[in-house]
Write a protein that binds this DNA or RNA. Structure first.
Lengths: 341, 341
DNA sequence: AACCGAAATGTATGCGATTACAATGCCGTT
DNA sequence: AACGGCATTGTAATCGCATACATTTCGGTT
């Protein structure tokens, strides 16, 4: 309620002095300083953000667009983002695109309205072209999803090589009949992990059975259903790579419902290492994404971008390392299972 | 980049007319309207939020302070909030207090700076007195946690009666040796659920063994450890009420590690019904909180508050209904177990 | 004593929008 | 032809703050 004018009056100085006390303390006399500070505290004065922003044409808010805040992977990234944002005096405006592209686009106006100084996209629901255009005008960084051919600063893991690693792991365990429950093909994430799967299979000369590759949408339900599908084929797999953990849970529960034991009868590996993966039984072997670090790194990048005048000129791609977390859902191909081949 | 002035020039009208096209279309001639609209689209013009806010002294941003965005319960509430916020043209500024009271207080300045028009608190990390004071000046609603004696609009479930229901459920199944893994005693949530537990036990004349009541902190780890503690006593419980689902998972895993089978040897009931409760094995019997609705209701309340001039004058408490979701982690006290008594 | 320069403070402008009020133009009516 | 009134548009003030520039003050130098 109290404005700078009130403070000025009560302290018997001009508003300029009050302003200086807050932003350039070294230019005001010590005595005046004290006097003004006292009044500021007394009135609980906080400079009006809108006025300040209008005058300086800069805001300390950034926008983060998330596909699904309910997913712990994203919320961890978000936490990473927020943690360095706060440290640097920024607030984060949340945009849950709810996997809805239209709604995602709407958030772009936030930038145009100057309600946010920059944006971090955790979603790829927005078309590459649009993102690229926006990135020319405003500081934008992509996290989690790498958009091919888009010249926008990105921090992510290498989904292709990670998926390759996961598949290799299964191959090294002796599996030959390996199934894949992929992510949706309209997402880069889904396609990249598929690609990695094929690469590994090709590299080790393991034949890919087309029926053993099923497309899911990253949800528990599709994991469950696709696993049922896989098990319906005559040549059932001895191992399955699920493109994220939630689908892996679905797959495991489906297998057990069909009377199979994981990992004795069938090995299953996931992707993400969400919080629940260690709690689940069997504890899920999975590829761990460094979610929190993705967040902090992304925010670091954005901060750097925001202090420059030209954005996305420098091609910056940060690829974070990830690793396989070995737990209980995979094991060497047993002789018994081998018989089934 | 483009301002109202640019639009005005290109369209050959005054800035007042441009402004009117956007806010009072009925007062401008149809022809002018079209002309201006064309330029607006051409330039991709969006009114500067700061300028608008300064002039009108109203913003379409609200602040939500969450104790832990990583917890799916809170993120669901948040989603509920965001969903009705967006519908009404509001954006949500996220504050993750990370269970840190100091950081929580910092968010109050956001209100003073007029960066947000109102606030929803999902956390109770801030002292009741401070909350009450803030609520006098700004629209504030409390969600999830009911602060006793605080005259601030609140939407929540009745934690006491819900905990009573959960305990009753165990009693009706024939259990007599019932353990409790409570939430932290410095939170209302924790205390209320404890209270409900005692009420039910008293009502049915079941004796509460003091060693069978252990305090956790809502984390998986404490659930696990406290369960180990419970099982270390000579009189082990045949049923345990864990004050939230994560602790219930810990409790189940601890019990199984000790060679017990859930629910055959011991029944366990949780609280919250988070996403994984249905996926976990055994599927968790739990008290479901209508998280999404808590969010939508809270935002509804806040919207109403924001359009009024006096806040928290009317004592509004919304208590949402919750219900026990019966799944596989509880069963009737078997004769075998009874022998142990 | 006169003057200079540095330090401290004040005055006044503008950021980009909204809107009260003024001005303009056009119409029909007398 | 003059005028009143309505519809439309323009002019200018304003929101709260930051800051360039002007002004004042004061100590030191000659």
């Amino acid at each position: 309620m109290a404005g700078i004018r009130d403070v000025a009056e009560q302290a018997n100085v001009s508003i300029a002095t009050v302003s200086r006390v807050l932003s350039k303390p070294e230019t005001v006399a010590e005595e005046t300083m004290k006097k003004v500070m006292k009044v500021i505290e007394l009135l609980n004065y906080q400079p009006n953000a809108a006025a300040r922003q209008l005058r300086l044409s800069e805001t300390t808010t950034i926008l983060v667009v998330v596909p699904d805040i309910t997913n712990t992977f994203f919320s961890k990234v978000l936490r990473g983002i927020e943690s360095v944002a706060i440290e640097n005096g920024y607030q984060v405006l949340l945009g849950d695109s709810a996997n809805n592209a239209e709604r995602g686009k709407g958030y772009l106006n936030i930038l145009r309205q100057k309600k946010a100084a920059g944006m971090i996209l955790l979603t790829a629901g927005i078309e590459a072209k649009i993102v690229e255009k926006i990135a020319l005008e405003y500081p934008v960084v992509l996290a989690c999803e790498y958009l091919e051919g888009v010249n926008v600063p990105t921090v992510s893991i290498d989904n292709v090589s990670s998926a390759r690693k996961a598949t290799e792991y299964l191959i090294h365990l002796g599996h030959k009949k390996i199934g894949l429950i992929s992510g949706p093909m309209n997402s880069v994430l889904g396609r990249d992990r598929l690609k990695g799967f094929y690469q590994a299979m090709a590299q080790y000369n393991v034949k890919v059975e087309p029926e053993l590759v099923q497309e899911g949408d990253f949800s528990y339900e599709t994991g469950f259903n696709m696993m049922l599908k896989l098990l319906a084929y005559s040549q059932t797999p001895t191992a399955v790579f699920a493109a994220n953990d939630e689908m892996a849970f679905g797959a495991i529960n489906a297998a057990e419902q069909k009377g199979l034991s994981v990992p004795r009868d069938i090995s299953i590996i996931g992707f993400d290492d969400i919080q629940f993966s260690a709690i689940f039984k069997p504890a899920l072997t999975t590829v761990a994404q460094p979610a929190f670090q993705i967040g902090t790194k992304a925010m670091d990048l954005l901060l750097r971008l925001m202090t420059k005048q030209r954005f996305s000129k420098t091609k910056t791609q940060y690829i974070l390392e990830n690793q396989i977390i070995t737990r209980d859902s995979c094991q060497k191909l047993s002789t018994i299972s081998k018989r089934q081949m």
